[in-house]
Computed example of a mutant assay.
Amino acid sequence: MPLRSLKVADYMSRHPAVLKPSMPIEEAVARLIDAQSIGGPVIDDLKQVVGFLSEQDCLKMMLEGTYHNEQSATVADCMSAQVLSVNMDMAIVDLAQQFGANRPKVYPVVDYQQKLVGVISRSQVLKAIHLHLKDAFANHA
């Protein structure tokens, strides 16, 4: 089986920490911690990705001192609205080639209606390629 046949849908996490723009940042932080996630997609009522909230975004908000102020920040106040998402049918090898120094470590995964169906991380991509190469090597040994 060629490396190109590995698809994002086969290796993505289907149950990411999903956030809403109006959610208080404290609740979002709790969800990310509970999910042991470095970030999560922010979706609207149609399940379309409208942003991404990273640990770095949360840390920045906490260090600015507004985390425990009386007027709490929301996810929309902290998230990045410039989100790179990938389609669930994208080849793993193509996604691996997109990873770079200034690229996200986690990508929201969307279907053909642009609705969130999961997330995929660098470590999941690495695992997919590793398992494929390990199997290919074992079959040729």
Rank of each mutant, 00 (worst) to 15 (best):
L63C: 09
G40V: 00
M61V: 15
H68W: 15
A28T: 00
E55D: 06
Q48L: 08
S54K: 03
P24S: 04
L46Q: 14
P41I: 01
K47Y: 13
G40H: 01
M62R: 11
K60A: 14
C58Q: 06
T66H: 15
D45W: 03
H68C: 13
Q56S: 09
K47G: 08
M61S: 15
L63G: 14
L19I: 02
T66S: 13
S37V: 03
K60D: 14
T74I: 05
E64Y: 11
I43Y: 02
A30N: 08
T74R: 09
P21I: 00
V50P: 07
F52I: 09
T66M: 09
A35T: 06
D44A: 06
E27N: 12
V50L: 04
V18R: 06
K20G: 05
V29Y: 11
H68Y: 15
H15E: 12
S22P: 06
E27M: 10
M61C: 15
I25R: 04
M23Q: 11
T66G: 12
S72P: 08
A30L: 09
K47E: 15
K60R: 15
F52K: 02
P24W: 05
D77F: 09
D57R: 08
V75K: 01
A30F: 07
K20C: 08
F52W: 01
K60S: 14
L19T: 01
N69W: 14
I25Q: 04
K60E: 13
L32W: 01
L32D: 00
I33W: 07
S72F: 06
A35W: 07
A28V: 00
I25E: 05
S72M: 12
A30E: 13
Q56L: 03
F52M: 07
D34A: 13
V75A: 04
V29E: 13
V29F: 09
E64V: 04
P24V: 10
L59C: 07
F52S: 03
S22V: 07
D45V: 04
S22T: 12
D77I: 08
Q36D: 10
E70Y: 12
R31I: 05
G39D: 07
V42N: 03
G65V: 04
A73T: 13
E27I: 06
K60I: 12
V50W: 04
A28C: 00
A76S: 15
Q48G: 09
A30D: 08
A73C: 15
Y67T: 09
G40A: 00
A76Y: 06
A35I: 08
F52G: 00
S54Y: 01
P21N: 00
D57S: 09
E70M: 12
A30M: 08
L19Y: 01
V42D: 02
D45Y: 03
E26A: 11
K60P: 08
L59M: 11
V29A: 14
Q36Y: 05
L32Q: 01
V18N: 03
P24M: 04
G65D: 05
S22G: 10
Q36V: 10
Q48N: 13
D34R: 11
